[in-house]
Design a protein around this nucleic acid. Structure first.
Length: 829
RNA sequence: GCCUGGGUGGUGGAACUGGUAGACACAGCGGACUUAAAAUCCGUUGGGGUUUGGCCCCGUGCCGGUUCAAUUCCGGCCCUAGGCACCA
């Protein structure tokens, strides 16, 4: 027969026990929480505070799927738990509502972005309420609210005045489809991260933020925060600090010099040529007349190569010789200077010394153009009589590890670390170099040629130049207009609105024009967490008193995809504000938790893959408590895991059984439970409490199931047991537990009057233990002993165990391993 | 290539500091109840062998090591997901 269940069986009708009608219960308590504002945080209260924050969502058109829900469930569970543990919990929610996607959709659907955004926010808010997540909605705001972005602009002005915002003509990434400039972070593999078009380069005046000034602190101060190591590693990697030296190579025919950056000054004697990036300013200056034609055409072809071509793997290295020679500052050797696009103009000095013997890329280049490959580092000095005369023959590939210097004049024989120091010392002495640090991190392009964003508060005056909008004139309002489509010229749609552009210079009062670029989406999210305690404050973005009391965020929950962008930008903003004296702390998020991504059918959930599970439907069939619990039961909260449609019935069954058992025993106020049950309860409280505090939600639920299974073998239990379970399950299954709490005779919410149960360590401890008995590490039986039994007692018990005795018969006992309360092991021959 | 995770039954996943591998669930199989189904409940379920027993052997990606004892620690690989990547 094999009646196979339909794929979407969880959608089919489910026989709901009459006395457990989640639809009624869910609705009832959700209304109660809202009416009674159980989550209204008392910002001024003296109780210890706990600031639990979700990364606020970008209200997209697709709505939330069960993958998104996971993080919100986790934060809601933590908040409710902390609330019951006596904390003054702030758990706010808001919207990251400015940005490209909304604007693109608005153009497509011909609905103004402000209207579209408002609709989507309503849908998101509804979905979050369905989950049963209780936020303090009085704190809600959106980054596109004027009252909020006024302060985003205020911060920009502060950054400008502190010299951290500046304008620069830069070749920027331009997306021909989105018709806007993109930040480096929005380009992946040469394509626009959002629409997939191939990105072009264009020269434009760009607003930049000087995040590189904070590179060291952003890297070093990661040590201060309780974040997953993986995220810290990602950020350090992104900042990409490398230590080395800057070295000057004088040109053979006169005064000019070429400066390079290298992390391996110890290989200086192996430099057999140099390469400049084609964009390097000195290229044409140094090129000899006979090479000029060739060099020019190479520069041109490099400029025309798309980002993708330049980055494609296995690309053969090419380049041309400039005809110029440079002098190695330590060896005095004359080496040729080439240009090639394998050297990047924007990293280091845009020029390198090439050591083909010890760098894979240089090796490849040297092979192509038949340049000398010299060995100047070897792994070990063993068997080497004269390090200065080691043969350079037979190098089949670059040796990139550290080791000992050879063929390096008086430095031969030094190890890499010492060699680096000595070489730098000498270079410093002769004025040809110094130690240097380089970063991969680049300054942040902080402008978009788009409508739906915060207008950059700068005014251009013919007389006074660049003038920031005075703080008292903020906000610079985004005009509500019909023409918000991109101009395609690369300029913002705002540039076409005369009423917006034309203004008076705040300094001289003369005619002036406004900046028409807007800020990137990351602007609003870089400081929103500072605004929640006082979202309506109109004298400042935040107050000293509140910052001191509520910040930093105690627990920040969100996806790992924000590891390098949002989280780095937010840290930068906070550090800059701290340096300017506006904040009393310099790290915004004390603890970070990344929820694991939920997969289905082996792929990340997404609308385009068609593997999303809509939470609305599951809530409809099973209730939100069941979905909440299943989201956590599915696996460890920080690890990616697979969504199985079938699994949810297990949680559903558990909740029904729990409800039934609870209702049946709710009256047993004075019932004295059998000792074994009492002990089991205390053991359960102990284990489960440890697990939930350690964020092990999946095994916390297992413990609840185990205890309920144990409980089912008895015909009766005490109301005390029901009460303990109800409180413990309430963070995850708040609706059912609130109902049971009410039935237990409480008239206040479980979240304001419930107290997490305590356990008696004496009762929680097992008095009888099952000790495994091994022979040669293999299990041969278990014995039951009193806790703390000593070696002699155990031996006596074993002597009475026929089977174990039998398996020891005729064997010579070499060793007896005894670990108290754990295990015994006979080592026999 | 580099940096992070991850690899355990048919499936999702347990296992504290090295101490009974597979908790808890799902699916499967067998049974009870039912005219029947749903729901519910009970039993069973890593693989192989076997004298059906409080039995034996194998088994946590692979190879080796340390240990009385390794999913756990060490060395060397393989696979996989994510991030970075001609960054000198």
């Amino acid at each position: 027969m094999g009646r196979k269940k339909e794929k979407a069986d969880y959608m089919s009708k489910e026989n709901i026990d009459q006395d457990f009608n989640f639809k009624v219960i869910d609705k009832k308590w959700r209304k109660y929480w809202e009416d009674n504002k159980i989550y209204k945080v008392d910002v001024k209260s003296g109780k210890p505070k706990y600031y639990c924050l979700d990364m606020f969502p970008y209200p997209s058109g697709a709505g939330l799927h069960v993958g998104h829900w996971r993080g919100y469930v986790i934060s809601d569970v933590c908040s409710r738990l902390k609330l019951m543990q006596g904390y003054n919990v702030m758990h706010p929610m808001g919207w990251d509502s400015f940005g490209l996607p909304a604007e693109n959709d608005a153009i497509k659907l011909e609905i103004h972005p402000s209207i579209l955004t408002a609709e989507r926010i309503d849908n998101f808010r509804r979905q979050l309420k369905e989950i049963g997540a209780v936020y303090d909605w009085d704190l809600e705001f959106a980054t596109s609210d004027v009252d909020y972005y006024k302060w985003t602009q205020w911060i920009f002005v502060k950054l400008y005045k502190a010299g951290l915002a500046y304008r620069k003509m830069m070749p920027i990434n331009f997306c021909p489809s989105c018709k806007t400039g993109l930040a480096n972070e929005e380009v992946t593999g040469g394509e626009c991260e959002r629409c997939g078009s191939v990105v072009e380069k264009r020269d434009m005046q760009q607003w930049m933020l000087r995040i590189t000034k904070y590179a060291d602190r952003l890297a070093d101060e990661l040590d201060k925060v309780d974040w997953p190591e993986s995220v810290k590693a990602l950020q350090r990697n992104w900042i990409g600090r490398s230590r080395g030296a800057r070295i000057d190579f004088a040109l053979a025919d006169g005064g000019e010099k070429i400066t390079v950056f290298t992390t391996r000054p110890d290989t200086l004697f192996g430099a057999t040529y140099m390469v400049l990036a084609p964009e390097h300013q000195m290229v044409l200056k140094i090129t000899s007349p006979d090479k000029l034609q060739e060099v020019k055409s190479y520069i041109e072809s490099a400029a025309n190569k798309s980002e993708i071509d330049r980055m494609s793997e296995n690309r053969k290295k090419d380049g041309v010789f400039t005809g110029a020679y440079a002098i190695n500052p330590l060896s005095g050797e004359k080496i040729p200077v080439w240009i090639s696009d394998y050297v990047l103009a924007h990293y280091g000095t845009g020029a390198i010394m090439c050591v083909p013997g010890h760098d894979t890329r240089d090796f490849e280049f040297a092979k192509t153009f038949n340049i000398e490959i010299r060995r100047v580092i070897i792994k070990s000095l063993e068997g080497v009589s004269n390090a200065a005369k080691v043969s350079s023959q037979g190098l089949n590939e670059a040796f990139t590890e550290t080791g000992f210097m050879v063929n390096s004049a008086s430095y031969s024989g030094l190890d890499t670390e010492t060699g680096k120091i000595k070489v730098i010392e000498e270079l410093k002495k002769i004025g040809a170099g110094e130690e240097a640090i380089n970063y991969k991190l680049r300054d942040w392009i902080f402008a978009r040629q788009r409508y739906w964003g915060e207008p950059i508060p700068i005014i251009y005056c013919d007389k006074c130049g660049e003038v920031p909008v005075p703080e008292e004139d903020l906000p610079v309002r985004l005009p509500h207009v019909e023409k918000y489509k991109p101009t395609g010229t690369g300029r913002s749609p705002l540039a076409a609105i005369d009423e917006f552009v034309n203004c008076k210079c705040p300094k001289c009062g003369g005619a002036a024009k406004r900046e028409t670029d807007t800020m990137p989406q990351w602007a609003g999210s870089s400081w929103y967490f500072l605004r929640y305690p006082e979202p309506k404050l109109d004298s400042a973005p935040f107050s000293d008193e509140t910052m001191k009391k509520w910040l930093p965020v105690d627990l920040y929950i969100g996806g790992i995809e924000h590891a390098t962008l949002h989280l780095l930008y937010a840290r930068f903003f906070v550090k800059a504000l701290y340096d300017m004296g506006h904040l009393p702390f310099d790290e915004p998020f004390a603890k970070l938790f990344n929820q694991g991504i939920i997969y289905r059918n082996g792929a990340k959930m997404s609308k385009s893959r068609g593997n999303v599970v809509n939470p609305d439907e599951i809530v409809e069939k099973y209730g939100s408590d069941c979905l909440r619990m299943f989201e956590l039961f599915i696996g460890p909260p920080d690890i990616m895991c697979e969504w199985k449609d079938d699994g949810i019935v297990g949680v559903s069954k558990f909740l029904k059984r729990f409800y039934k058992i609870a209702v049946n025993n709710i009256e047993n106020k004075n019932y004295k439970e059998p000792e074994a049950l009492l002990r089991a309860r205390h053991r359960f409280i102990k284990t489960a409490t440890e697990r939930i505090n350690a964020f092990q939600f999946n095994t916390f639920i297992s413990a609840c199931m185990e205890f309920l299974n144990f409980l089912s073998d008895y015909d009766k239990c005490s109301a005390e047991t029901i009460k303990a379970m109800t409180v413990m399950l309430s963070p995850m299954a708040p609706h059912i537990c609130e109902e049971l709490w009410n039935m237990l005779g409480n008239d206040k919410s479980i979240f304001t009057s419930g107290k997490w149960p305590e356990f008696d360590p004496a009762l929680a401890a097992l008095d009888e233990l099952n000790i495994p008995v091994q022979v040669n590490g293999k299990l041969r039986g278990t014995i039951s002993v009193a806790k703390g039994a000593d070696e002699e007692t155990i031996k006596k018990i074993i002597a009475g165990n026929e089977f174990i005795v039998k398996s020891l018969e005729g064997k010579q006992i070499v060793k007896f391993v005894f670990v108290k309360d754990k295990i015994v092991n006979y080592v026999v021959k």
